[in-house]
Amino acid sequence: MATGGRRGAAAAPLLVAVAALLLGAAGHLYPGEVCPGMDIRNNLTRLHELENCSVIEGHLQILLMFKTRPEDFRDLSFPKLIMITDYLLLFRVYGLESLKDLFPNLTVIRGSRLFFNYALVIFEMVHLKELGLYNLMNITRGSVRIEKNNELCYLATIDWSRILDSVEDNYIVLNKDDNEECGDICPGTAKGKTNCPATVINGQFVERCWTHSHCQKVCPTICKSHGCTAEGLCCHSECLGNCSQPDDPTKCVACRNFYLDGRCVETCPPPYYHFQDWRCVNFSFCQDLHHKCKNSRRQGCHQYVIHNNKCIPECPSGYTMNSSNLLCTPCLGPCPKVCHLLEGEKTIDSVTSAQELRGCTVINGSLIINIRGGNNLAAELEANLGLIEEISGYLKIRRSYALVSLSFFRKLRLIRGETLEIGNYSFYALDNQNLRQLWDWSKHNLTITQGKLFFHYNPKLCLSEIHKMEEVSGTKGRQERNDIALKTNGDQASCENELLKFSYIRTSFDKI
């Protein structure tokens, strides 16, 4: 039985969820670079991206490699990797027998973001014989899940209580170790020597080791999670996991709180800001991140802002960003909400898709409305799209047979046209069989910064309504002859009103 693990408890099935942008060198404390989270699957090609990484700022997932063999891993080693800020997950990587050479110096898994409450997941690794993470000293947050690894031993010899604050939620089941077939031998045991430290858990006094050649490092209890030197002297209180010299914040392997210019500090002093819960960055760093993602459509890219001495992905609820200094300031009234469309555009074809934009005031991208039916549609669209004030790209209304009016965009005031449909149009209306009105132009103002209007096959939309939009939106004169079809717009509506004058002759039985 794995020490510190839980057996036999019912657990939810383990679901495996399925960018080499360097964020800056980590400095003297770390020998390499800070790398983003990685999802490495199918083959070993991307694994080489770990070569210079000291910190993975995010998670590391290595999974679904069915053609790899043990010899493929023999020359692979990433000794610079010290810390993973989120979680480490391995799933069905064939041929991998140990992690001792792959990650010989991995010391800390912070667990800032977890995989279903777990910071370390080893699942269905069919050839893994031992973990071998002999320098792993601290899992700051989260638990361990090690399950269905039929060859995995050296679990009962690990004292997880020396690595985690609590072992109650560890789930370590259905491994070879369960069948008591392992016969784990710690260093020196074969020669009758006791080389590794022994600890007591559940009444068992057991030597602690990761492999037959690597003991588990056990520091004096007084050192807590700070770690200790090879001689057993406690590291500085700002260290986490390990250090090369005692009581020196510049000799830590990793930091308990924050890293700044080669030393570990309790908090980031001005003019620095907390970033990702582990390091200090200056304003320029946060500003660069903001600008890199301002026009990016890459998933996970955030326009970072500053709030409460932190550089964070977005302002919290009730705050909006001051564009001059990136500071989050309290909103006066309802907060603006910028919604970034991942692929640059979004099609609204149902109430469900409209709900995804609920509360958005600025759309960074283009909207395509293609709704053919739905219950209580006008009210639903207004509830979900009615706060949109600005669209950076274009607005396209296409084959939306259920629409009679666009009044559900009740606050839309600006279409920038930074991206144009077919390279020309910022407003595009095609084949809307029941569209009769755009907006009530006596109450609604709309500016279209650039781009043209396109109207074709809107049989109940009168040309007068379209011409009014040209005047109000500032697009009059931009359109070419064929942009607004004269014969297919309003051709099934009563669009022309003329005053009919009647004269009559009164007659009676005795007068003409």
Rank of each mutant, 00 (worst) to 15 (best):
L29I: 01
V34E: 09
P36G: 15
P36H: 03
D39C: 15
I40M: 10
N42M: 12
N43I: 07
N43F: 07
C53N: 00
G58K: 00
H59P: 08
H59Q: 10
Q61F: 06
Q61I: 14
Q61K: 14
L63G: 13
M65Q: 07
R69P: 08
L76Q: 06
S77L: 09
S77F: 15
K80R: 09
K80Q: 07
I82L: 07
I82A: 06
I84A: 00
T85S: 08
L88K: 00
L90G: 00
R92T: 04
Y94V: 11
G95V: 02
K100I: 07
L102Q: 01
P104F: 01
T107S: 12
G111L: 01
F116N: 15
A119F: 00
E124A: 03
E124G: 02
H127Y: 04
L128G: 01
K129W: 02
N135H: 07
L136P: 00
R141P: 01
V144A: 05
V144C: 04
K148P: 01
L152M: 08
A156I: 10
A156H: 08
A156R: 11
W160H: 01
N170R: 08
Y171C: 02
L174W: 05
N179M: 05
E180V: 09
E180K: 10
E180G: 07
G183R: 07
I185Q: 11
I185T: 12
C186L: 04
K191N: 15
K191E: 03
K193I: 03
N195W: 12
P197L: 09
T199I: 08
V200S: 13
I201S: 10
E207K: 15
E207M: 14
T211Q: 12
K217I: 15
V218C: 11
V218H: 11
P220Q: 11
S225C: 04
G227D: 02
A230I: 06
E231F: 15
C235S: 00
H236G: 05
E238C: 04
C239A: 00
G241N: 03
C243F: 00
C243V: 00
C243P: 00
D248R: 03
P249H: 10
K251Y: 13
A254T: 02
C255N: 01
R256C: 03
N257R: 12
N257C: 02
F258P: 01
Y259P: 01
L260P: 00
R263C: 05
P270V: 04
P271K: 13
Y272P: 00
Y273V: 13
D277M: 05
R279K: 07
F283E: 13
S284K: 01
Q287L: 04
Q287I: 13
Q287F: 10
D288E: 09
L289S: 11
L289F: 06
H290T: 14
R298V: 10
Q299A: 10
Q299S: 03
G300N: 07
Q303L: 09
I306K: 02
N308G: 07
N308R: 12
N309M: 11
C311E: 03
C311V: 14
S317H: 08
S317E: 12
S317L: 10
T320I: 06
S323K: 05
T329H: 06
T329E: 01
T329S: 11
C331G: 14
G333Q: 11
G333R: 03
C335V: 05
C335P: 09
C335G: 06
P336G: 04
